[in-house]
Amino acid sequence: MMAYMNPGPHYSVNALALSGPSVDLMHQAVPYPSAPRKQRRERTTFTRSQLEELEALFAKTQYPDVYAREEVALKINLPESRVQVWFKNRRAKCRQQRQQQKQQQQPPGGQAKARPAKRKAGTSPRPSTDVCPDPLGISDSYSPPLPGPSGSPTTAVATVSIWSPASESPLPEAQRAGLVASGPSLTSAPYAMTYAPASAFCSSPSAYGSPSSYFSGLDPYLSPMVPQLGGPALSPLSGPSVGPSLAQSPTSLSGQSYGAYSPVDSLEFKDPTGTWKFTYNPMDPLDYKDQSAWKFQIL
């Protein structure tokens, strides 16, 4: 009977010793046993002879290597770790002494450095960015050149030099007046198309007034536009458009034309069986010896 009264063996659950049927240790109110408190290391007290050895090595170098620390530790009968900690504390003490010396050398008012006064946003004049500046400075420094007289040679050079070769001289006033084509001369031969040399188009003023001019072949195509416009036809070669000034309004060009419109200028042929003959000019830059190549039959 006494065997049943004795408590059973101890069981360990999660490293906790349980005594038989008792489960009081598993209750929430019972805390787990805490780790033992780490003991504080005792402070090391250095003797005068030990301090002399350490100070002598510190005077040589503030960062001794492990071999120098072990050698000193053997002399003063201390572990190497204590020597390492002593050098660490000695360097910190040396830095603190240097900072105190710097503070003593500075004057009393030198510690508080005078800061520059901050400028207020409204006091300083700042350039306004509302208006974009002129990058080319046209509004201040540029002045347009004065327009020359209508009959000045410089204007003629600016007008005619675009179309004339570089080897030719500017046309005088008398020749510029001949550039304007007359109405009857352009409409006299509506079906004849003559190819003149390129030099005649640039230099010869008579080429624009003769039936064999460069633009005589364009007349049949330009004249039928007159009834559609409801007024006189516009002429690209009329009046002052080739003269001194090219800047004319469309209203000033509306009254200039080749001449009176005639039914002869239409595109319809009077004789459907007729042929169109292209007159060959020996001055043509295209060297075609066979003139029969310039004739064709309209079917």
Rank of each mutant, 00 (worst) to 15 (best):
R41L: 11
Q111Y: 09
G20I: 11
P211I: 12
Q39N: 07
P153V: 12
E173H: 12
H10C: 10
K118M: 00
S216V: 15
V83L: 13
S245K: 07
K88E: 13
N281Q: 13
Q256A: 10
T123E: 03
W276I: 04
Y288K: 10
P190Q: 05
M26K: 04
A156P: 04
D290P: 13
E173F: 13
H27Y: 13
D219Y: 14
E71C: 08
N6T: 08
Q103Y: 06
D130I: 09
E71A: 10
L253Q: 03
S206V: 07
R95N: 13
S241M: 10
S292Q: 06
P263D: 04
N14E: 02
Q96M: 03
A17I: 14
L286N: 03
Y208L: 04
H10F: 11
N77R: 06
V131P: 12
A92Q: 07
Y191A: 00
Y32D: 03
S204E: 01
N89T: 08
N6L: 15
Q99D: 06
P227A: 11
R37H: 09
V85H: 14
R98C: 04
G122W: 07
Q97N: 08
N281T: 15
Q99K: 10
Q101N: 08
Q104F: 06
E268R: 09
S150V: 05
P7K: 06
G110D: 03
P184K: 08
P272E: 10
L222W: 11
S12T: 15
L246G: 07
S161V: 15
Y63L: 13
V157H: 04
P144R: 05
Q39A: 10
P36V: 03
R119A: 02
S223C: 08
P220D: 03
Q99T: 02
N281L: 14
G259H: 07
A121Y: 06
A17Y: 14
M193T: 00
D287E: 08
P211G: 04
A156R: 08
D130M: 04
L18R: 01
P7L: 15
K270T: 14
G122Q: 04
P240S: 04
P135V: 04
P145R: 07
Y11P: 01
R98E: 06
I138Y: 05
L299C: 01
Q228V: 13
P107G: 08
P224A: 09
Q62F: 04
E52K: 11
A293S: 09
N281P: 03
K277W: 12
R98N: 05
R126N: 03
S81W: 11
I138G: 08
G20H: 08
M193F: 13
L286M: 05
L253A: 01
Q228C: 13
Q28V: 12
S34V: 06
Q39T: 09
E80I: 06
G231E: 01
L25C: 01
S216G: 06
C202A: 04
V226A: 02
R90F: 14
A73Y: 15
M2K: 03
